[in-house]
Design a protein around this nucleic acid. Structure first.
Ligand code: SF4
Ligand code: SF4
Lengths: 134, 134
DNA sequence: TAATATAGGACTGTTAAAGTCTGATTTATG
DNA sequence: CATAAATCAGACTTTAACAGTCCTATATTA
């Protein structure tokens, strides 16, 4: 419960790796997967998403790969999760998918109080950056 | 991602309901389920767990039911989750189930940094009580 | 043009969450 | 004392999200 998904963990590990080396250095999905023993296909998908959203820059073709495109201080855990999961980390389903997603919505008495928890969570994830995990 | 489980939500809704009424009042699982349109069987299980851990007191037999056994200020969301899920809310699998639970453990570079996130999370859940959701 | 890399999507497998069902036990009450 | 109403306990099924795999297309270097 409340665990980060494997995809997010793979993304964090890869981004941290890049952040440790000189800015602009290029890494292939293959070498990253091998280095940390992550499933290549899955990591590749994650890196592609990060590339689409400009967190890393991708270079295709032979000698291609990925390089960090933002400063480690600018990439928050919140952003990484949003990009990889394609949604914000929320404590309740209805926060993400709206009233129709939960049949309890009409008589739910905890939705509003949980908002406080959510806001505090947001602060946590918005505050933590890749810089903090190098 | 990061959502509270339905069981926890059911538990919170039920506990809040009890906390709204005079201390010691007895409610049956049936009426609670009906009032908020929650699945009876599932809610019953949740209440049983809460009873086993002394959060609510149970009365068997006809005219039985459940009553809040602790003050709303004493019941944290953290405790509710631990009781219902039978584990603490953790950001990483290995925190809950140990090194053997994750094959990345040996070369995981994000485990320690995530500890900071975890500690902040703990504070959030330890701080919020049933009193705050009435 | 061959080799190597990303890009994208479809597909399958696995697991945890959610829900259901059955039966036993307890206890107030007529 | 019999009945009904409630908790208690566990097994079971269903569902949906997550994790992982596979295949093909495209881009780029050498
Ligand atoms: S139970 Fe309440 S808070 Fe949870 S998803 Fe449904 S409406 Fe939202
Ligand atoms: S990836 Fe790292 S932090 Fe996540 S569960 Fe595995 S060892 Fe723990």
């Amino acid at each position: 419960m409340l665990q980060l998904s494997k995809k997010v963990e793979y993304g964090l590990i890869a981004l941290r790796h890049m952040a440790m080396k000189p800015m602009g250095q290029v890494f292939t999905a293959k070498e990253l997967a091998k280095e940390y023993d992550m499933p290549y296909d899955l990591l590749a998908k994650v890196l592609q998403k990060l590339a689409r959203h400009g967190i890393v820059a991708s270079l295709q073709g032979v000698r291609g790969g990925y390089a960090l495109a933002k400063k480690p201080t600018e990439v928050t855990v919140s952003l990484i999760i949003r990009v990889i999961e394609e949604e914000r980390p929320m404590v309740a389903e209805c926060y993400t998918d709206g009233p129709a997603s939960c049949y309890l919505f009409g008589n739910c008495t905890i939705r509003k109080p949980l908002g406080k928890l959510q806001r505090n969570l947001n602060v946590l994830f918005d505050t933590m950056t890749v810089q903090e995990i190098v």
